[in-house]
Design a protein around this nucleic acid. Structure first.
Lengths: 219, 219
DNA sequence: GTCTATATGAAGATAGAC
DNA sequence: GTCTATCTTCATATAGAC
């Protein structure tokens, strides 16, 4: 009876799960390449290597499929953001390491494609856009805020002027701002590593100089 | 012969120009509301109050019409950015005035819609995206840079650490970053004036503290 | 130049065999 | 559950009268 040990779930079968994964993978490719409206179910069907009926057996509409893809991508994105860690000791080194890692995540082609799809379709899928904000920009800001707390506890810096959260937000935007804007408006051309290093170093320098306690700029 | 003074242009007639303007206005409304792919020529035709043939008499394809709309919107946007001026004397006051005005421009519903359309369709219309970058983010950065030059000449501030252009870019992103990201991911909800004031004040404070010469933070 | 009517193709979604 | 074949709707673009 070894072959009888099927899962209890009504829709679960080995082949069905494979097909479902193929559909999601194909839809991911197509939606991230073309956005929602320009993507067609024909393209998805072909990319997934299944028939159109199989797509509609799993997802009632194209909208549902788009939601599933974007939610999955947000989860991946969140995992990437959460994985950002550092063992550096000084605040400047911590921020530099976080900034470098964050730029790698944000400037990755799939992340830029996700941003395009989410922001471009935000009026039609507002809940997806809000979710993206939480796991992406706001998620990174929360990580930065934790590190700022530690540094403030050590009296290295003082955020009382604007508040810890505003300070964290400012660092995030110093790091991401120009880099992301250039990538979004210059599709295909990716910034060099040296360019990224320069953005991060400048962001860390400006941030630390602005908040260093007693004028010390070398934290 | 007063009625004979028609322009030499082969397509120019009063009624034709009116129709052309109506087409462009209708296309503007539709494209900014729905983006390129989700917009239909039927919607444009209805919004313009003309027939479909009139649309195609003026613009060969839907792509051409989209390009015309986005180019026109970029011109409006550039005019709005160029109109940003201030007579304030201290650098902090200048930056605060510029920042406030820039946020008003950038967070306007039409500007957000333009951003969505341009960035969402950037892979298909890369030249429009690059043009937008020039007139929008980069245009404002150039204005900021001019004011930074004056302040540096007065020895109020010192940008030698990162360079004037990088400093200007940092200010732009301190002002715009969080505000624009929130608006893009939370369609419909507009930040309060108090919220905008807080963003700008924090940006100016952080920027000036980072670059003030000799620790003076009250420029 | 502009309109009404339409050609032509492709989109999203389903029916029925296996 | 999956596929082939198809239905229906709607898209872009054009033809021909005025």
């Amino acid at each position: 009876m070894s072959e009888e040990a099927a899962p209890a779930s009504p829709t679960a079968s080995p082949v069905a799960d494979d097909k479902a994964a193929a559909v999601l993978a194909g839809a991911r490719t197509v939606f991230l390449s073309h956005g929602f409206s320009a993507a067609t179910t024909d393209m998805i069907q072909r990319a997934a290597g299944v028939s159109k009926a199989t797509v509609y057996a799993r997802y009632r509409t194209k909208e549902d499929l788009f939601r599933a893809v974007i939610e999955a991508e947000c989860s991946r994105h969140l995992a990437n953001v959460r994985a950002l860690e550092t063992r550096s000791r000084t605040l400047a080194d911590v921020l530099a390491a976080l900034g470098q890692a964050y730029l790698r995540v944000v400037l990755a082609p799939e992340a830029l494609a996700l941003f395009r799809a989410v922001v471009g379709e935000a009026p039609r899928f507002p809940e997806l856009a809000r979710h993206f904000y939480q796991v992406g920009p706001n998620g990174f800001q929360a990580i930065v805020a934790q590190h700022l707390d530690r540094a403030a506890a050590d009296a290295q810096v003082d955020f009382s002027l604007v508040g810890r959260d505003m300070a964290a937000s400012q660092f995030v935007n110093l790091v991401r701002g120009e880099a992301q804007m250039q990538c979004l408006t210059h599709p295909g051309s990716i910034p060099s590593q040296a360019q990224c290093d320069q953005w991060v170093a400048a962001a860390v320098g400006t941030f630390v100089r602005a908040f260093a306690r007693g004028g010390r700029a070398d934290l």
